[in-house]
Design a protein around this nucleic acid. Structure first.
Lengths: 252, 252
DNA sequence: CGGTACATTGAGAAATTTCAAAGTTGGTGG
DNA sequence: CCACCAACTTTGAAATTTCTCAATGTACCG
């Protein structure tokens, strides 16, 4: 289920020559051109300035459990994951959805435990970078420091938006907002083709994100389908009435 | 309504001698022994290493409106305030409650606008510190940098907890959690006397915080009173059954 | 070809909102 | 000191949203 990706054993060979290293995942990662890994460790094209500890895990498995020791700054390299809180009574709240290239939490920069868990939605490849190294780079590089400030501010804005959703908006609005949010992220990545984009969340996961029950989530999605707004299922969303969907998802 | 506190005009007099400056609010602020101002600019006893721009404002007035230019890093010196989002349809969501000594948002360190507004709950004295100065100090002082990391992490944990509250918990649980949260903060400050502590939020504000209507909020508070758990009103909370209240507020 | 997880549907129950009216409180000016 | 005003709180009744329970249908995996 959880497989450590074997690092090249002779990163630097006996004669001190650094080989091409096509196998180190970061060296071929195309998210480095846009995400925080690139800002931290150099954009794509450059060899990666630090080695992360890479792993793979199957869909629906936990990458991290709240309260466990945390191995480093966690990045989702490939696949989708969610950050969530599991309550003793069985309920769970999904806090955020992470796409390939996303830092799991810009504020989890310190050794110690986290208050949330992380679960793979699809099969996931992920990576830990050493805390101290990441902190040192941020501290010693003013433009990087500012980039990181922007990232933490963006995460807080996102959390604030979710708070407004859960506190003030109806089931339909919350679900529409989630779909629109993911649509916009996919569009930026060029993954929106023929008004269709990947959406691997199950109805249970949509429910856990929006604070609804799976049954009610199903009814809302059915209504969206019946009204020819969009069709969610089988790992994809098909947009039929983009304008209408955006109107539903927008704050009123 | 909004009054600029006149800074001493001759901070350094003609002979270059710095006078005692008892009037600069930061020099007599007793929160500096514990809050982030102290970490940033020196603990109480020391003269304040930087001058904030201080102001006062009456209860129920806005300190900052979302989208306006932001003057600096905002600290609540005295009184209670809330951070909130106002929706066009009249609904509002309160994101967090700030007590004296609180930084308004650890992630609002950059010039530019914020996505939320800030309103005084009671009469408030507050203060802006220049962005660049604060950033420079954090960047140049490793222990301060770590302290600030802890603060941003704590703010995110708080936002995550609120998300769980709004997404997964009943009206009674949300209200109990708010009361317990404030109770614990007041207790740390030694403001809990005879099982009673200050609580200046109106029912409307409690409703905006918990994502409920004021009418339902009133019914829940009435039930708490009738069941002799606690009595909320007139600017205070009287705790009758602390254990029961904590049980209600705790995650299940 | 089963089995398991996921999705759908129906009916009734519960929590919360809405609307409307009446009571209270605290502050202000006469 | 009193009267009044405005804002806040309380109460009732009905409507709405969302949940719960339970059964059935569907898709994918080995």
């Amino acid at each position: 289920m959880l497989r450590e990706i074997e690092p090249l054993s002779d990163l630097v060979n006996a004669r001190g020559i650094v080989p091409a290293l096509p196998d180190l995942p970061c060296n071929t990662c195309h998210f480095r051109s846009s995400n925080f890994c690139g800002a931290l460790f150099g954009r794509s094209g450059q060899p990666m300035a630090i080695r992360g500890k890479h792993r793979e895990i199957a869909a629906r498995q936990n990458i991290y459990r709240a309260g466990e020791g945390n191995e480093g700054v966690l990045v989702i390299c490939d696949g989708w994951a969610v950050r969530f809180v599991q309550l003793p009574n069985g309920k769970r709240q999904i806090l955020s959805v992470m796409l390939p290239g996303d830092l799991v939490s810009a504020t989890s920069m310190l050794e110690g435990q986290l208050g949330f868990s992380v679960q793979a939605v699809t099969d996931v490849r992920y990576c830990y970078f050493p805390f101290a190294e990441v902190r040192a780079r941020i501290r010693n590089n003013p433009p990087l420091f500012d980039a990181w400030l922007r990232l933490t501010a963006a995460e807080q804005r996102d959390a604030d938006k979710r708070l407004v959703d859960l506190g003030q908006r109806t089931a339909q609005e919350r679900i529409a907002a989630l779909i629109v949010h993911v649509m916009q992220r996919c569009e930026q990545r060029g993954e929106l083709v023929d008004d269709e984009f990947p959406f691997p969340l199950s109805q249970q996961q949509i429910a856990d994100f929006t604070g609804l029950t799976p049954v009610h989530t199903c009814r809302v999605l059915s209504a969206l389908r019946k009204n020819a707004v969009c069709d969610v299922g089988h790992g994809f969303v098909k947009i039929m009435e983009r304008r209408e969907l955006q109107r539903m998802g927008a704050l009123k």
